[in-house]
Design a binder for these strands. Sequence first.
DNA 1: GTTAGTGCAAACTCTTTGCAGCACT
DNA 2: AGTGCTGCAAAGAGTTTGCACTAAC
Lengths: 136, 136
Amino acid sequence: MDKNVLKSSDLKNTKRRMAILEVLENSSIPLTAEEIYSHVIKTVHLSLSTAYRTLGTLSEKGILLKNLCQDGKTYYQINSHQHKHQLVCTLCNQTVPIDDCPLSIIEKNLIKQTGFTITGHSLEFSGICPKCAKHN
Amino acid sequence: MDKNVLKSSDLKNTKRRMAILEVLENSSIPLTAEEIYSHVIKTVHLSLSTAYRTLGTLSEKGILLKNLCQDGKTYYQINSHQHKHQLVCTLCNQTVPIDDCPLSIIEKNLIKQTGFTITGHSLEFSGICPKCAKHN
DNA sequence: GTTAGTGCAAACTCTTTGCAGCACT
DNA sequence: AGTGCTGCAAAGAGTTTGCACTAAC
């Protein structure tokens, strides 16, 4: 991601923010604040509250997508306009990304039916992964 | 709902449980623990922790469906095998139930692709309702 | 009578916030 | 230099849990 994303959103270009964005760019799945924090702290000092604050700011600016999942944790991902949902094993927590979002057609119908402007959605599947199914 | 739901799940038939189930039966939308508690307490004394414990138990038994939504609260509804999702206005919190769940086809594809057994899903749309769109 | 259910208070997890000090432009 | 960013510690929301008491079977 271009280093100007921050500037063009009127945000200062700091080490911590760059590091956070980098972690998310290199991840194929959405990550929690804790996960991002753990990655970043290996190379750049930062506090957990800064992680939360930064992730919040970047989400407000539309740079990130923020999603509260069924495990009670908030997951963040780069807003690439090609967002992903997750399929999570309830036993081992294995997470499989769902690459294409199947909801656009459904959203169109909802707009017609309710008159709402739809600004987002959250979708999460849970199940048992093949490994866990074998071992239980 | 039949009063035998509890018995057939090896649960004792108590005033509080009946009251909680009744509130959910009479609601057209999923409710939070707090909302359920507030309704029930008008007629039957109960503590918030009992509400949480009961809702948890009933969800485990498959009598209720439990869903953590983007507002950070867990919503409960009767598991009628005709569950509902929600469309929530991010400004006024108006909630519109989505009556038919559009995900069964998508789930079938996921099963093929991942080998998971799918046991549940959560889906939530957010947007701006027509009223709020006018007033802003 | 026994086991499951309940109330209360305390604890727990994830996240947010107030304030003083620091770093980017 | 000025404003926004950060760290730390404390607080907040929603939910869970330990223990003693109570009620259903």
